[in-house]
Design a protein around this nucleic acid. Structure first.
Lengths: 341, 341
DNA sequence: CATGAAATGACAACCGATTGCCAAAAACTG
DNA sequence: CAGTTTTTGGCAATCGGTTGTCATTTCATG
């Protein structure tokens, strides 16, 4: 038994083992497994049977080295612990796995330098990258995109395919919501200065405010973490507004906590609108009115666009831009403006 | 110019480019960059200068192929979107990065099959793996551990190094807390049947209950998701208990939501204790009494143990087991037992 | 049955590094 | 200064596949 079974070695089987078992050349095995049409069907079946028998698993390193394709895609997010990215990551992971790719997830720690060096690193070990909420400059991004296929999420740079979450338009909805509740003094709690999402949202918001004749002031920037919510809440209270539209739910939830500490009631004294509808937005106290969108889907779309870039043959004109719809989900953190004293 | 400057190509530089630039053999370059002592310091400096000038970045695939070491470590978690794993992932990521390793993060979707096939896959592309809350059998885990260095988290199998989070002992604390609040009818809301954490916790809990002469019944199993909280809450109410110790915070938060819907007050009518102190446990309504532990640190420790396995030379006896302390964090979801009518 | 086209399989170079082995050079010894 | 030890650098094989080239086989056709 051991004589007819060349396996039994500890080392994982290679195509050479298969070739020996079948009495063909290693190259034939390679072709049989990758471009099945180039090989006689009977031979191919023998090879496939042998591969199955040996539990053959191709060595991805070797494959990458000789073919130039790694079968991996990098996904860069600024902060793994931000729940917003959970669903995005899950979306990319599902879509990549479905296409037989591996996901390389990297936390860039909100740092442009880490982001840049990661990209350089990934240039050799990934076929393309999905970059969420990049902190890099347009120029740096374009330079990187020239070196390897890239899709951005929530970052619009001409020439780079992107998936955008349409929070700017939802911001107008939020504004209308607040106006209908008779708020007139409203603040935008800005995100990081380097976040294009925050910039675009502010642009949309201030334009909408002007159209509607209300005043919206901008506070911040604040880091997109719950801890920043305290400072944001204090700034909002100090500025005398009765409603806030926050850059994201983390900040909004942090504000809720701080306002509670200070004895300021939400929504009676102050209304809060978040953004992203992250895990927790529905069960915080009060539940958060927020702008929701299909984040997981955004992840899937981003991957689809990237894979279309990698395999141009597979039909379908490559979309270079995809905008995910967003809608306002009204919960308990917004209410009528307090009566002026 | 093009004659004296071998760079200027689009293709990334290799050690051969460096070798050509310095007039030495490629192998000398390799040695100069990896084992610096084996090469003349002046030559080395020339080589280093050339490498810097060309912006040389070693090709990790090629490195892995020829050396057998990949410089990557796989991290397997059952569910990326479970906030419990955020901190764990961040911990592993930080520690790995500090040691110059890359993290390959995989969501095994609570499936033993996905977990097993992922391990097989990773065998070629990672030097070792960290497996959190494995759903595999002891035998399968041992077999996998025999093929590649492994550290488990929250899974105790003799022969495999593990980081354990000491929730069993915290469970007793939780029980004492509830007893001191005069609860006598208490339920344990069990996690997945394949979860060893759940099993170990129940063992500790039922033993402690017996010692203290109170009755604790077991309900479930339930999937570790907020959605399961509804069923868990209904089961708890139906069973007539006044307090529950839940497998994790996700279930506990789901229970809070369901109980609120049903008009059952927490903690007046029912006390709830969670586990893990995840993101959200502090701002749900009411804030959750839960068992907290240094999860990020657990991730770091797991990676340290794995790296110690990979590089046995670097001194320090290899710990094969590390237990993370846990303590009860009392918040608003637990209170005195309702007076019997 | 001869002929050409199509299908198939083998050989070998190659991807970019690592590493064992050996030779040349340098430094040291007596 | 000869003889020896140590240091240093280069050659070439190797990792496990991919892929271009070419020889051979197979088959249909005239």
């Amino acid at each position: 038994m051991a004589t007819t079974q060349p396996a039994a070695v500890d080392r994982p089987p290679t195509i050479h083992d298969i070739a020996a078992l079948c009495g063909v050349a290693a190259s034939t095995v390679s072709r049989a497994l990758s471009s099945p049409d180039r090989v006689n069907i009977r031979t191919r079946q023998r090879i496939e049977a042998a591969a199955a028998q040996l539990h053959y698993i191709p060595n991805s390193q070797a494959k990458a080295l000789s073919s130039g394709r790694t079968g991996a895609v990098g996904v860069l997010v600024p902060d793994i612990t931000n729940p917003f990215y959970f669903d995005l990551i899950r979306g990319t992971q599902l879509q990549l796995k479905a296409a037989g790719y591996t996901q390389l997830l990297v936390d860039t720690e909100e740092s442009d330098e880490v982001e840049a060096s990661t990209m350089e690193q990934l240039r050799k070990s990934a076929d393309g990258i999905v970059v969420a909420a990049s902190r890099l400059s347009d120029e740096a991004l374009l330079a990187a995109a020239a070196k390897m296929p890239m899709v951005t999420v929530n970052r619009d740079v001409p020439g780079i395919p992107a998936v955008l979450i349409d929070t700017p338009s939802a911001t107008s909805q939020a504004l209308d919501h607040l106006i209908s509740l008779r708020h007139t003094r409203i603040a935008y709690i800005a995100g990081p200065a380097t976040s294009q999402s925050s910039t675009r949202r502010w642009a949309a918001l201030s334009e909408a405010a002007e159209e509607r004749g209300v005043e919206v002031r901008r506070l911040g920037p604040f880091a997109p973490k719950t801890q920043s919510g305290a400072a944001a809440a204090d700034a909002a209270v100090h500025s005398g507004v009765t409603a806030c539209i926050a850059f994201n739910d983390l900040i909004a939830i942090g504000m809720l906590q701080r306002l509670r500490e200070r004895g300021i009631r939400v929504p009676e004294d102050m209304s809060i609108v978040g953004c992203d509808d992250i895990f927790g937005a529905d069960f915080c106290n009060p539940p958060l009115t927020t702008m929701a969108s299909p984040i997981e889907q955004a992840g899937r779309v981003a991957v689809s666009m990237l894979l279309a870039q990698l395999n141009p043959l597979a039909g379908g004109g490559t979309r270079s831009r995809s905008v995910m719809p967003t809608h306002l989900t009204v919960r308990g953190s917004t209410g009528p403006a307090p009566a002026p004293h």
